[in-house]
Design a protein around this nucleic acid. Structure first.
Lengths: 146, 146
DNA sequence: TTGCTTGCAAATTTTTTGCAAAAAC
DNA sequence: GTTTTTGCAAAAAATTTGCAAGCAA
């Protein structure tokens, strides 16, 4: 078997949990480490990883796998989706439009699939990047007025 | 800037492309390498990665980022979703029920987001695993008939 | 005391890069 | 002939693991 359920409440675990909870930018493990390290200067990155795993296993936080540099962590455990900005890399939670996302999973069940969770990610540009782009990156030379 | 557009048709590129096209199991880079290596024994893994990137950039194949060991590659470039079996790890393409997945992205646009793509992944158990589990893993002792 | 958890360093895994030689055009 | 692509080996980046010592229960 893999590992026993976590039993002990340690300062490291607590701090890792708080760090993730206090950060809705979907941080990477290394960012969690930086935050926790300020309070527990002797903590190691390995411990941060171990505690992140424990918290995910317990269902207290979630893992997010998107493009790029590795796993991100999400304190939001309720059902929601994500928007990934391809320009600046930020990830926003999307709750708002739950009503507009009607996904009928019953057809899968009819084919023998057992659905546990699902996961919708939108890629594009966040409002900030979209407007910045419009201003700063003309895709062709501005038309000269005659 | 990053790199010039690919221009040359090499045996390595061709074989990598064919290997991905011939494999709808969403293989990892290493599996592509194993396949191509049979035909081009001198090819290196680095070349496989480079060619996979080129093909993704050209839009001829897609990258899939799910749990686990790294990126997977997908020869299917039309709009579709994925089912990931949490037990055996297989990934199935889902086309069937496109009509049942109505995602209204207009509300995002109203908030200034620019949508490029979106991406739906369902997690659960595939039919094979679901039935195997029912047979081989009773979650509690079978009720004894009185 | 017991045995889960930590810190450290080393190991793994996955992917990328530098560079000279080979191949494509 | 020129420029891109390859193979190799080494580097990087991200994550995991072994183990003795530390700490919670």
């Amino acid at each position: 078997m893999r590992r026993a359920a976590r039993k002990r409440r340690t300062r490291q675990l607590e701090q890792v949990f708080e760090a993730v909870q206090g950060d809705h930018t979907h941080p990477f493990a290394h960012e969690i480490y930086r935050r926790v390290h300020k309070r527990l200067p002797r903590i190691s990155l390995a411990t941060v990883y171990r505690n992140l795993h424990s918290l995910v296993e317990e269902g207290k936080i979630r893992t997010l796998l998107l493009d790029g540099q590795g796993a991100r962590y999400d304190p939001e455990t309720s059902e929601h989706d994500h928007f990934v900005c391809e320009r600046c890399g930020r990830v926003d939670d999307l709750f708002l439009w739950r009503a507009r996302r009607r996904i009928d999973l019953t057809s899968l069940a009819k084919h023998g699939y057992v659905v546990m969770t699902h996961n919708l990610t939108i890629h594009g540009m966040c409002p900030a990047c979209a407007s910045r782009r419009r201003l700063s990156r003309p895709s062709r030379p501005a038309a000269r007025k005659p």
